[in-house]
Amino acid sequence: MPQLGQRVSGLCEEAVEQQAYITRFLLDYTAVPLRSQIFLRGMLPTRDAVRIVAGAADAVAPNTLVAYEIPLVDNDDEPISAPLALGWARTLVSSSPPYSDTSVMGMSLVRVDTSAVEPAPPVHTDQVLRVLRTLAWPVIETPPSPVLCGFLFTGQDSMRLYFAVEEAGVIAADVRLTGALTALLAALPTLVREEERWTADETDPHCVHTVDLTTW
């Protein structure tokens, strides 16, 4: 299947905010299943859309994952809500993905016509998470900088984090999930801005540069 995707270079502030908002809202579903044994395995930022990556709880191999591309706005050009994106994702993973001759990063890519997909209604767990998230993690006026607008599990002990960096574009940082995590998380905003660390990854159209912090 052919590789697809226009590399994310410039930043649209509204799109980045929307991608970051949906990413934050769906983070819990890396541990809580979307449906049955299907979990969130990534959120990939792309132009005017988010790509929700789904698979089994420990799936990291591209051929075991499916990326569902959902537009950031509806047919009335209004921004979609994160609960609506969750509802669509849950419907989509409830059945076998439709055939697609398109791929991205080795994953099957399904472009979703949201007008033809009925979002699944919220379940009890969604409501519980919404209450607890709102109380424990209230909305703040000043978002973090750079903002996290996506992620992808790349191994059992590694993941790629996508940051929107002003005047640069989306920078992807590869990190390990063990080791000096406290120090790494504190340093990440600085490390992803250090141009001498930037390299190119032609296989990933969701970023303009990558930073390898797996040995940091």
Rank of each mutant, 00 (worst) to 15 (best):
M1K: 13
Q3H: 14
L4I: 14
G5W: 04
S9G: 12
G10R: 11
L11Q: 06
L11H: 05
A15G: 10
A15Q: 15
Q18L: 14
Q19P: 01
Y21Q: 13
I22L: 00
A31R: 14
A31N: 15
P33F: 06
P33W: 10
L34D: 10
L34P: 09
L34S: 05
L40C: 08
L40P: 11
R41W: 06
R41Q: 12
L44W: 05
P45A: 00
P45K: 00
T46D: 10
T46L: 07
T46G: 10
R47Y: 14
A49W: 00
A49Q: 08
A49D: 01
V50T: 08
A54L: 10
G55N: 02
A57H: 15
D58T: 13
N63W: 05
A67C: 06
Y68A: 05
Y68L: 00
E69F: 00
P71K: 03
L72C: 04
D74C: 02
D74H: 05
D76M: 05
D76Y: 08
E78T: 07
E78C: 09
P79Q: 01
P79Y: 01
P79M: 02
A82F: 10
P83H: 00
L84D: 11
A85H: 00
L86K: 04
A89D: 07
R90K: 04
R90L: 01
L92M: 11
L92P: 05
V93Y: 08
S94V: 07
S94D: 15
S95M: 06
S96G: 05
S96P: 12
P98Y: 01
P98M: 02
Y99L: 14
S100M: 08
D101P: 07
T102F: 10
M105R: 14
M105E: 15
G106M: 08
G106F: 06
G106E: 10
S108K: 15
L109I: 05
V110A: 05
V110R: 08
V110D: 07
R111D: 04
R111E: 07
R111K: 10
V112T: 09
V112M: 02
D113Y: 06
D113M: 03
E118N: 12
E118G: 06
E118M: 14
P119A: 07
A120F: 09
P121S: 13
P121E: 09
P121K: 10
V123T: 12
T125C: 05
Q127N: 14
R133Q: 11
P138H: 04
V139G: 04
I140V: 15
P143G: 03
S145H: 10
V147M: 12
L148H: 09
L152A: 08
L152H: 09
Q156S: 15
S158I: 07
S158T: 13
R160W: 00
R160K: 11
F163S: 03
F163A: 03
V165G: 08
E166D: 14
V170T: 12
I171H: 05
A172L: 02
A173Q: 03
R176M: 09
R176L: 15
R176T: 13
L177T: 15
A180H: 14
L184V: 03
L185A: 12
L188D: 11
P189W: 01
L191C: 02
L191W: 03
E194F: 04
R197D: 05
R197N: 12
T199F: 00
D201R: 04
D204G: 03
D204P: 00
H206Q: 03
V208C: 13
T210H: 11
L213M: 05
T214H: 04
T215I: 01
W216N: 04
W216C: 03
